[in-house]
């Protein structure tokens, strides 16, 4: 075998499939952005020229604005809550030696494989049984309970991969356990905490299957209102909303790249 083929890690079929797959993935994202500026309620070719009508529609709709406020509120409360509760839990699972540790880990991670609809209906049944009319509180509790395993899992994987010698060195040099944790361990967990936070944040804003059960007219959130709008009307207002969400996710991706680098975060997610 010659040198050239050693340098090429794969044949032509692999990059061809990957390129097609990328186009497939980007198609709806690019399309919905373009569609949001189309001056017409239906899709047509050639597209009619740029308008901000649907954005005006979105921002002037009281339903969409209240839903945006609710969604942001849920995401901004649930994300830090999951991190604050998840971090000590992850430390206990990764480092602790106590009876039932494995059982706790299994129980904690099991909701990850329960379909969202089942979790949603089950929580609805519980809230109905205890007459818990908590308004937005239902969704706050639901999203917290649902998001916690994500946060814990990424942090446990990261903790298990740390080099224990760094912490031993700090301890040998006289740092207390608490000081070692905050000055040596915690900074190393930066990328998994960020990954966990992004996951919980996106889930809190975008989750449909749980939100649809735990919200009502007064506590409606973005995905549910968007679904109802798609069902009842036929114009690109939802495309405007989608474009704003895509812009937000682009901003998140760039922030991650600047903060820790995407490839590094992927490396962490290996487990």
């Amino acid at each position: 075998m010659n040198r050239r083929s050693l340098e090429r890690p794969y044949g032509r079929l692999v990059p061809l499939t990957a390129t097609l797959a990328c186009l497939f993935l980007l198609l709806p994202v690019v399309f919905v952005v373009a569609f949001s500026f189309n001056d017409g309620a239906y899709f047509q070719w050639p597209p009619r020229g740029p308008t901000l009508r649907w954005y005006v529609n979105f921002f002037e709709s009281e339903r969409f604005m209240t839903a945006t406020e609710h969604s942001l509120k849920v995401a901004l409360i649930v994300t830090p809550a999951c991190l604050v509760v998840g971090l000590p839990t992850a430390v206990a699972i990764a480092r602790g030696r106590f009876a039932g540790r494995d059982l706790i880990a299994t129980l904690l991670l099991s909701p990850l494989i329960v379909p969202g609809v089942v979790t949603g209906v089950a929580l609805l049944a519980l809230f109905t049984a205890v007459h818990g009319d908590l308004g937005l509180g239902r969704l706050l509790i639901g999203m917290f309970v649902f998001g916690l395993p994500f946060a814990v899992r990424t942090m446990v994987a990261d903790l298990l991969g740390l080099d224990p010698r760094l912490e031993e060195a700090a301890r040998n040099l006289g740092a207390t356990r608490l000081r070692t944790f905050f000055l040596v361990t915690l900074p190393q967990l930066k990328s998994s905490m960020l990954a966990g936070a992004v996951f919980v944040f996106v889930e809190a804003i975008d989750n449909f299957s749980i939100s649809v059960f735990l919200t009502d007219e007064r506590s409606a959130v973005l995905p549910v209102v968007a679904y109802q709008y798609i069902r009842d009307f036929d114009d690109p207002t939802v495309a405007a909303m989608a474009t704003l969400l895509i812009a937000l996710s682009c901003a998140l991706v760039f922030a991650i790249e600047r903060l820790i680098g995407f490839e590094r975060m992927m490396h962490i997610n290996r487990k």
């Binding site: 990328c22 993935l25 980007l26 198609l27 709806p28 994202v29 399309f31 919905v32 569609f35 899709f43 992004v198 996106v202 804003i205 975008d206 449909f208 973005l222 995905p223 968007a226 679904y227 798609i230 939802v238 495309a239 909303m241 989608a242 969400l245 895509i246 996710s249 682009c250 998140l252 991706v253 991650i256 995407f262 490839e263 992927m266």
Partner: peptide, 22 residues
């Protein structure tokens, strides 16, 4: 990676809606 991440983060309702129109 950016393609995957942006698609992944842009949300379910967004994508379901886009496919409906497409």
């Amino acid at each position: 990676l950016f393609t995957l991440a942006v698609t992944f983060l842009s949300g379910g309702v967004t994508r379901a809606y886009a496919w409906m129109v497409l």
